[in-house]
């Protein structure tokens, strides 16, 4: 397959390039190779969290609970270590402990026809309060660290290429394969675009929603473990920045590859753009809130562009 970089679907790659060149031009610190790789490392966690969210949005649902679930998993990690569970078991227990939260969202949506927004707001709140109960709302510091987990979070191959990013990249390529070559991928887009037609065709809506919510929670859980390792503590209330960064990345991503539809490769590039933006803003000493404003506007902008291009066609984004 030939890749045409000048197609509309690839505009975002150019945007990223321009952004990188722009920051590189004005800041020598930014253009250092290790900083550029640091951007890739720092986008990895967000990317991991939004993989499931991407598919949820594509299928016409939404998930606002992913940062809270990650926070919950991070404190579960710290707690497991505190009570003497070895790291090897902890990295399995913590992500699995997040799954019931995903199940709860799916259950509320599938069985009680909760709007996804309400269900995931409620689940987010449950996750945060559960996380707070573990250590009275305070961060719980890791009793000891694990070299293996540290290597996943901070390790660099050849002292440069972050291990974490490589793993995430591999995961995303696998996800892309699922998205484009299996019935699950096909059906979730069908659901997002025309629910009635999908149901008539016998697509099992509930099973798809359930599995993506479980996947989303599991990935948020894994990010939680990595978060705990990178902060050396479990944090019950991780800043809201993951939320807006993640959703903005998803909607930025929907502007590329499959125009107007959230998709995994788009989300990955979206996450890189967001990380580049945050990194550049920090390095240039621009107040961080400029980044917040920019991300908010970016998000509204993406949605606007998608909608304008879809005039006279049925809207597919969740409303």
């Amino acid at each position: 397959m030939r890749i045409n970089l000048f197609k509309r679907d690839n505009v975002l790659v150019w945007a990223l390039l321009v952004l990188v060149l722009f920051f590189s031009f004005i800041s020598p610190d930014f253009r250092r190779l290790d900083n550029l790789f640091e951007i890739l490392r720092s986008c990895s966690l967000i990317a991991l969290m939004i993989l499931g969210v991407t598919w949820l949005v594509a299928s016409g649902e939404i998930d606002v609970s992913f940062p809270n679930i990650a926070a919950f998993a991070s404190i579960v990690t710290a707690y497991c270590i505190k009570i003497g569970i070895p790291w090897g078991a902890t990295v399995v227990i913590a992500p699995i402990s997040a799954i019931p939260l995903g199940l709860l969202s799916a259950f509320l949506i599938n069985t009680f026809r909760f709007p996804a927004l309400i269900a995931t707001i409620a689940v987010a709140s449950v996750a945060t309060s559960l996380a707070s109960m573990v250590n009275g709302g305070q961060p719980l510091y890791l009793a000891h660290s694990s070299d293996v987990v540290e290597y996943f979070v901070y390790g660099k191959i050849g002292g440069l290429v972050p291990v974490l990013f490589l793993l995430v990249l591999a995961l995303f390529f696998f996800a892309k394969w699922i998205q484009d070559n299996t019935t699950v991928g096909q059906h979730l887009y069908a659901l997002g675009e025309n629910r009635k037609a999908s149901l008539e065709a016998g697509i099992n809506e509930k099973r798809i929603i359930l599995s993506i919510f479980v996947l989303s929670a599991l990935l948020a859980g894994i990010s939680g473990v990595l978060l705990a390792a990178s902060f050396s503590s479990g944090q019950p209330r991780i800043g809201g920045s993951f939320f807006i960064d993640g959703l903005t990345a998803v909607f930025l991503g929907s502007l590329m590859v499959k125009f107007g539809k959230p998709n995994v490769m788009g989300s990955l590039i979206g996450a890189i753009i967001i990380a580049t933006l945050s990194n550049g803003i920090t390095i240039l000493g621009i107040p961080f809130y400029v980044g917040t404003i920019t991300k908010g506007l970016l998000m509204a902008f993406c949605v606007g562009i998608t909608m304008l291009n879809r005039k006279n066609k049925a809207p597919q984004l969740p409303t």
Binding site: N181, T183, V184, E193, N194, A197, S198, G202, A314
Partner: peptide, 28 residues
């Protein structure tokens, strides 16, 4: 007839019956 507008003709033809395989990742 209800269709998925952005899917190609043949994808709509086989919507819901793309693969007879079961399992985690039924390949199309």
């Amino acid at each position: 007839p209800e269709m998925i507008p952005s899917f190609s003709g043949y994808e709509n033809v086989f919507l819901g019956v793309e693969s007879s395989k079961r399992g985690l990742f039924p390949f199309i």
